[in-house]
Amino acid sequence: MSYAADVAALTRKDLLLELRAKETLPAMLLFVLSALTIFHFALPHGTDDKASLGLLWSALIFTALLGLTRAFVAEREQGMFDALILTPADRSAIWLAKALSVLAFLVAAELVALPAFAAFFSGIDGRTVAAVALADIGIATVGTLFGAMAVAGRARELLLPLLFLPTAIPIVVGGVGGYLWFLALYDAIFAVLSWAAFEYVVSEV
């Protein structure tokens, strides 16, 4: 099978699993709505749009974290990592497929979150939407790699936020400031790095 076919098959597997089990996406949707509601009450009256935009970004990062924590649960609980490694597919195809499915969940969650934000707080412009789209790529690529690292450890769910959040700080800066070129640069650098590094994270001995 070619690289693209491997990736397509693995992504389809993840999306199909989610479609049948409905474990991750409903949780992400509920979480982002609850978070936005909390933020409404956390902000004092008369706060300007810039402050609420910052909260949108924190809500998105934490929602993504929720999805990333669940990303490798099936692999871990069913011992599927060993099976995946035994397949003749390129290891980075496993990473790319997982990153694509994480990206799909993120986009689906944001299709609800962004209109909800626009309704609860202030309207959003095209620049914010573009920034969110670019940020999703960075979150999915780095987050998937760190997610695979975190499930190998004992701390698991506890470990992923510690690994991911410091690396996500530039995403928040780029997102809140609307620096699209910076987000694109971040995506390019970390996508290549994660793609190259994944093999070392999952390989056996």
Binding site: P170, G174, F190
Partner: peptide, 14 residues
């Protein structure tokens, strides 16, 4: 080490 320059740029921007 990759994060160092990226973060530096981010902080400069921010």
């Amino acid at each position: 080490v990759v994060l160092i320059p990226v973060s530096f740029l981010a902080i400069r921007l921010s």
